[in-house]
Design a protein around this nucleic acid. Structure first.
Lengths: 233, 233
DNA sequence: ATGACGTTATGACGCCGATCATGCCGACGG
DNA sequence: CCGTCGGCATGATCGGCGTCATAACGTCAT
C-alpha cells in the first residue's frame, strides 16, 4: 500500500543501511503514509507508542506543554528524520507530543515490525543509539543555553543551528528552507512571542536577518555567531 | 589488576546482563580503578574519549561550563551508573566534563575493549540505547523545566527527582544519601547560589526540608511536589 | 465584501531573580 | 592558635524580560 517509493525512501536512510532490500520491501509495504495539516497532531504525549515514525515531507515539532498552556518545542524535525523510536523500543507511551509545523507527510511503521527487524539486525539498534546520543547532546546544549544565556543569545544560537543543519546558501545569506513562526521560535528558546518578535525586528533593522515571504534569511552569520556566544558587540 | 571484585561489580549491571562470565572476567581485568577527591576531574570537555567509565563509589557530576565560569550540571551519577559511553562508541571527544562531587572511585574500561565487546554482544548496544533514551527524556524534562518553571519549582523538582531516584526513607522523611552543595544545586537548576540558599532556607523555616549534617531530608514531600508542579500554595 | 483569525508589531508596567556586598561559621593546616 | 578557605546566610539594588494592552495587516471562508 505504501508503494515502492516508500522502500526507496527507507533505503536512503542510514538507519537501515545494514538491512537487505528483501526485508526493506515488506517493511515499506507495512508502513502507513499519513498526511497532516498545520497544527495537526501526529500523536499526543501519553499516547500508547504504537508506531515508529519518519518525516517524509514537511516539519514536525516534538513538544511538551505545561499547565498554563505554554508549549516547549524540544525538537524540530525535517524530511528523513525519525521520531518516536525510543518510546517504541522501550514499550512506553510517547513522552512528548508531535505536531505538524507545516503541511507534512509522515511514514508510520507498526511497533511489532520495527521491533522484529531490530532483533534480526542489531545494526539498526546501533544506529539508533548513535542517533539518540546526538539528540542527547543537542538536548544538553539546550539545557546549558537555557541555564546561562540571555534570550537574544538563545535566539541567535537556535537560528544558527537550524540554518546550518538544513539551510540553503543564497546570494543574500543563509536561508531557512521553511517558514518559522515567531511563536515557534519562542517555544524553542523558552521565551515569549513578544520577546522573539522584538529581538528579530531589532535584527532586521540592523541588517542581520531578512524576512522574505515568511522565510528568514541570516544575512550576517558572523555577527549572529558573536551574539550567540554572548558578546554584546 | 582490578581484581575479581570488579568482575562481580560488572556482573551486577543490567548493561552486561547478556555477557557470559568468561568474557566479563577479562574485561574487568583490563579495567583501571581510579580514585578522585572532591573537585577532581575524571575528564574534561574536549578530551579524547579513551575510556568507558562507571561510577563505583561516590558521586560524579557531568557538567559543562560557560565562558564566564558558570557551571551547568547536566547529570549527577551514583554507584553503578556508566558515563562517557556515547562519546566512546561514536569515537568523538567527550562533550562535557566529569567531576567528582565527593570522594569517588571510577572504573575505566579502555575504548577498544568495550567496542570489541559490543560487536560480539549486540545486547549491550540495546541496553545502551535504552539508557541513553532515558537520559534523553531526563534532559528534555530539564529543558521544559528551565523554559517555563520559576526557580522555586525547579529546585523542588530537582530535589524530588534525586530523592526518589536514590533517597532513603527515614522517620524524618525522604533523605538524600549524599551531601549536596547549594552551589551544585544551583548549577543543576540554572540559578545562582544565593537564590538556591534563599529558597532552601525558606523551606527549612516552613519545615518542608531539614538539613542534618549536610544531608538534606525532604520532610514534606507532598508540599514540595505541589511547589514543583507550580502551585503557589 | 466582511467578519474571523493568525501573525507581526510596539509601548507601558512590574516583578522575579541576578548581582554585589558583607558577615558568620566550621574545618583544616601551618 | 589563628589565618585561610569553602559553604551558608541575608540585605540592597537594578535590570532583563514577562505580562498586558492595543493595533495594523494578510488570508481565508461564508
Amino acid at each position: 500500500m505504501a508503494g515502492d517509493d516508500a522502500a526507496v525512501f527507507l533505503r536512503a536512510m542510514p538507519l537501515f543501511a545494514g538491512v537487505p532490500d528483501a526485508e526493506l520491501g515488506p517493511l515499506a509495504a507495512n508502513a502507513r503514509v499519513e498526511r497532516y495539516r498545520v497544527r495537526d497532531y501526529v500523536f499526543m504525549e501519553g499516547d500508547e507508542a504504537d508506531s515508529f515514525c519518519i518525516v517524509r515531507e514537511g516539519r514536525i515539532k516534538i513538544l511538551r506543554q505545561s499547565r498554563g498552556g505554554k508549549d516547549v518545542v524540544l525538537e524540530l524535525l525535517g524530511p528523513g528524520e525519525p521520531f518516536g523510536g525510543v518510546a517504541v523500543i522501550e514499550g512506553r507511551p510517547y513522552p512528548a507530543s508531535a505536531q505538524a509545523a507545516e503541511a507534512s507527510v509522515v511514514l508510520k511503521i507498526p511497533r511489532e515490525r520495527i521491533v522484529a527487524l531490530t532483533e534480526r539486525h542489531p545494526g539498526i539498534v546501533r544506529e539508533m543509539a548513535l542517533m539518540i546520543g546526538r539528540r542527547l547532546r543537542a538536548a544538553h546544549d539546550a539545557v546549558k543555553s537555557l541555564a546561562v544565556d540571555p534570550v537574544e543569545a538563545r535566539l541567535a544560537a537556535t537560528l544558527l543551528r537550524l540554518a546550518e543543519q538544513d539551510g540553503t546558501r543564497t546570494a543574500r545569506g543563509l536561508a531557512l528552507p521553511f517558514h518559522l513562526t515567531r511563536q515557534s521560535l519562542a517555544d524553542m528558546t523558552g521565551t515569549t512571542v513578544e520577546s522573539a518578535i522584538r529581538v528579530v525586528s531589532r535584527w532586521q533593522k540592523r541588517g542581520l536577518v531578512r524576512d522574505e515571504r515568511g522565510r528568514l534569511i541570516l544575512a550576517d552569520v558572523t555577527e549572529l555567531r558573536a551574539l550567540a556566544a554572548g558578546d554584546s558587540g
